[in-house]
Simulated assay, not measured.
Amino acid sequence: MGFEVSVVVTIFFISAVIVGTLSYTILTTSSDIAADASAEQHQMQSKRLNTDLEIDNSVAGVFNGTYDLTVTMTNTGSETLRFDDLNVLIDGSLKEYSFSDTAVTWVPEETRNLTVSNLTGTGTHRVKVVTENGIADYGTYVV
């Protein structure tokens, strides 16, 4: 009976060591993932705080059933943005746009133009431009 108790105690001890080792590994991995996520969140918040843009002008082309809208904007923040990652909304609808500049990077204090083609409707319209960081500016124009 003494030998059987020793074997059971040894099995429990080995099981406890294995469970403890696995628990430590899992907790360490979880802690590393949480730390990485926190650092990434801080970086995203910093980019958002340093991002700003201003719509300088919105000009609609000649109306012949449809028109083209040219929007002139300035990157007034301190963050370099990707000009091809902007979202342009006209009266709340997401629209495709084109730009003639060859560089897709948009550095601070640089003014750029984009063109939205084949728009319809007359009257006053609202344009919204949203950066990759979620920062937006609004403007209005009349057709």
Rank of each mutant, 00 (worst) to 15 (best):
L69D: 02
T70W: 06
T70F: 08
T70M: 13
V71E: 00
V71L: 08
V71S: 06
V71G: 04
T72L: 11
T72H: 05
M73Y: 03
M73A: 10
M73G: 02
M73C: 07
T74N: 04
T74D: 04
T74M: 02
T74S: 06
N75H: 12
T76K: 11
T76Y: 11
T76I: 15
T76R: 09
G77L: 06
G77V: 04
G77Y: 06
G77A: 13
G77S: 13
S78W: 14
S78P: 12
S78T: 15
E79T: 15
E79A: 12
E79N: 14
E79R: 14
T80V: 09
T80P: 10
T80F: 09
T80G: 08
T80I: 07
R82C: 02
R82F: 02
R82D: 07
F83Y: 06
F83A: 02
D84Y: 00
D85F: 00
D85T: 01
D85M: 02
D85K: 02
L86G: 00
L86D: 00
N87Q: 12
N87V: 04
N87G: 05
N87T: 06
V88Q: 01
V88A: 00
L89M: 12
L89V: 05
L89C: 06
L89I: 04
L89W: 08
I90L: 11
I90K: 04
D91N: 15
D91T: 10
D91L: 10
D91C: 11
D91V: 09
D91P: 10
G92A: 14
G92E: 14
G92P: 10
G92K: 06
G92N: 13
S93W: 07
S93Q: 14
S93F: 07
S93I: 09
K95M: 12
K95C: 05
E96R: 09
E96W: 07
E96V: 11
E96L: 12
E96A: 14
Y97W: 11
Y97E: 03
Y97F: 15
Y97T: 07
Y97P: 03
Y97D: 03
Y97I: 11
S98T: 15
S98F: 11
S98C: 07
S98W: 08
F99S: 08
F99Q: 08
S100C: 07
S100R: 10
S100M: 11
